[in-house]
């Protein structure tokens, strides 16, 4: 008799992803889908899809979905959550979306302690528009709008979103994870689950920053990308938990 060892989560629809080969957006989608399914909240989940490579997230998550303008997902999520306080509301945002154009919205969602969960995909670049510099682009990292590599004197140092948000009281759960190998993927899933549990417990705002790859715009193979993430991103963006409320510890 054969046993099923892997099953597509009910948290995702059957629609095939449009992501580039080796892009870790797909893994992160799966983790969120699995967590929603395991927590039994798909029927009351409402996701907010951003502008960015994950713009079609509304076709992938198997729950009610709402598109947002670039950077505005936390505001849209606020509107939804205030209307349906018993629902489970999440945003899924890239680093251009959240850390550049949408800084006001994310900071103030955290500041209000908005009871939503944000999945923040940090791939250190603008993926969808073709590899421009993001606030998270590393020093020396090449981007189409930083052809010689990011220069600190010209554009400053990469923004550490988790560190920044963890100074805000309303942000009850803040953790940075990575999906570059199996062990870290397991940890990432745990963190995502906790972030949703914080919402379910009515504690406040929760965010999981997920370090992610963009082989296409980094100009690397998927394997090289995973290695680059580990060797370059993690030293600058240390993994770990910044805030957890007692209740879910």
């Amino acid at each position: 008799m054969s046993t099923k060892v892997f099953e597509r989560t009910k948290g995702l629809t059957k629609k095939p992803f449009h992501y580039c080969p080796g892009c870790t957006h797909g893994i992160i989608h799966r983790l969120v889908g699995e967590v929603l399914e395991e927590l039994g909240v798909l029927g009351k989940a409402i996701g907010v899809a951003p502008v960015g490579c994950s713009v079609f997230a509304y076709d992938y998550f198997n729950c009610d979905m709402h598109e947002a303008a670039h950077g505005r997902a936390p505001a849209v999520a606020t509107g939804i959550k205030r209307v349906h306080p018993d629902s489970v509301v999440f945003t899924y945002q890239g680093d251009g979306d959240l850390a550049s154009i949408g800084t006001a919205e994310i900071v103030h969602a955290a500041h209000r302690g908005e009871k939503i969960t944000t999945i923040f995909v940090n791939n250190a670049i603008y993926g969808m528009t073709g590899g421009q510099m993001a606030p998270t682009t590393l020093i020396g990292q090449k981007a189409t709008t930083a052809p010689l590599g990011r220069d600190e004197a010209h554009t400053g140092k990469p923004l550490k979103v988790s560190e920044m948000l963890s100074t805000i009281d309303g942000a009850k759960f803040v953790e940075r994870v990575s999906v570059h190998n199996a062990a870290n993927i397991r940890k990432a899933k745990k963190a995502i689950k906790k972030a949703f549990e914080v919402q379910l417990a009515g504690e406040g705002f929760g965010i999981v920053e997920v370090l992610s790859t963009c082989p296409t715009n980094w100009g690397m193979t998927p394997t090289e990308s995973l290695k680059w993430l580990e060797e370059n991103m993690i030293p600058y963006y240390p993994l770990g938990n910044f805030r957890t409320p007692e209740e879910v510890k």
């Binding site: 409402i46 947002a68 505005r72 505001a75 606020t78 509107g79 205030r82 349906h84 919205e105 103030h108």
Partner: peptide
């Protein structure tokens, strides 16, 4: 809810309107 800006306010309206 007093939003952080008019941009946020209208996007909250967008969310709430979508939520019915």
């Amino acid at each position: 809810l007093q939003a952080e800006s008019e941009v946020a306010a209208i996007n909250m309206v967008y969310g709430a309107a979508g939520a019915g």
